[in-house]
């Protein structure tokens, strides 16, 4: 089974600091990591490949530095990596990103399955996975929370929706996007790291994937960012301190009164 796993390198955003003057992200000291939600895609891919044989190819579109993310995924156990890097890709929205990734997947040859993360923590759209499926005209299952069975011509998966889990049978080749319930990511091993360092990592540009230049980058992107601002979330609430028993008693009494005022008790 040949599996392609598109992964994105993102800034570690859990404690991003914003410049209050300019409303932009302070990039100094920010570490780049594999999009945390892609780790579940990587793990599921490796598990499937360990069972069924074949290959797991991680694919990333980004600056040369994104090679780090690919090597880390290979250290976890992915067999191959491809870096898509070219100035022509810069400024791509999800439409142009999924086009470039789909072209690279086509170019790479036969495959049975593409596994994406649910969404990237920076772009945060969740649109690239289905986008790839649309470009490749493949069936897709999103929000996959469990792989139930790998059948000869299809996969049976469970999909997380608002009110429960759907069980779906999806014909191969297909695209899945997975949520974090789908797998429990392993850590890279030392041997894996050594192997990853030695494995060749091809870098492809726009020409290598036979891409239509008009569909790439900012020029090929239907959407435009017109404005950025920093949201201010402040309510001037009534904040009490419950340091000693008397304060505690009073604060809780007032809380009950508040609930009463809004008709909840």
């Amino acid at each position: 089974m040949n599996i392609i796993i598109p992964i994105k390198q993102v800034p570690e955003t859990s404690n991003v600091k914003m410049d209050p003057e300019t409303g932009t992200m302070i990039r100094e000291g920010l570490v780049s990591i594999i999009n945390p939600l892609d780790l579940f895609a990587i793990e599921l891919g490796i598990v499937l490949q360990e069972e069924a044989g074949g290959s797991t190819t991680v694919l990333s579109m980004g600056p040369p530095k994104a090679a780090e993310a690919l090597r880390e995924a290979m250290a976890m156990g992915c067999t191959d990596g491809i870096l898509l890097s070219d100035r022509k890709f810069a400024g791509s929205d999800t439409w142009a990103t999924s086009y470039a990734l789909a072209q690279a997947i086509r170019k790479n040859g036969d495959f049975d399955l593409v596994i994406c993360g649910e969404r990237a923590t920076d772009g945060d759209t969740g649109q690239v996975g289905p986008g790839i499926a649309a470009w490749l005209d493949l069936p897709v299952a999103t929000y996959v929370s469990r792989l139930v069975e790998n059948r000869p011509g299809s996969l049976v998966v469970e999909r997380l929706v608002e009110d429960g889990y759907e069980t779906l049978e999806v014909e191969k080749p297909c695209v899945l996007t997975v949520v974090k319930e789908a797998a429990y990511p392993r850590l890279p091993t030392l041997r894996g790291k050594q192997r990853a360092r030695k494995t060749e990592l091809p870098v492809w540009g726009a020409v290598d994937i036979d891409a239509d230049p008009a569909a790439l980058g900012l020029k090929g992107s239907p959407t435009r960012v017109v404005k950025i601002n920093t949201p201010k979330v402040t309510r001037s609430g009534d904040i009490r301190t419950a340091g000693d028993p008397a304060e505690l008693e009073a604060a809780v009494d007032d809380l009950v009164a508040y609930l009463e005022k809004i008709d909840l008790v």
């Binding site: 929205d93 999800t94 439409w95 999924s98 086009y99 945060d124 759209t125 969740g126 649109q127 690239v128 996975g129 289905p130 986008g131 499926a133 649309a134 470009w135 897709v140 999103t142 929000y143 999909r159 997380l160 929706v161 608002e162 992107s221 239907p222 959407t223």
Partner: peptide, 20 residues
Amino acid sequence: SSGRTLMPLLAITCHAGLTA
């Protein structure tokens, strides 16, 4: 779960911009 799946598929098909 359905809107976020359908809309990107449709956006590619119609060559349209989509904001999530």
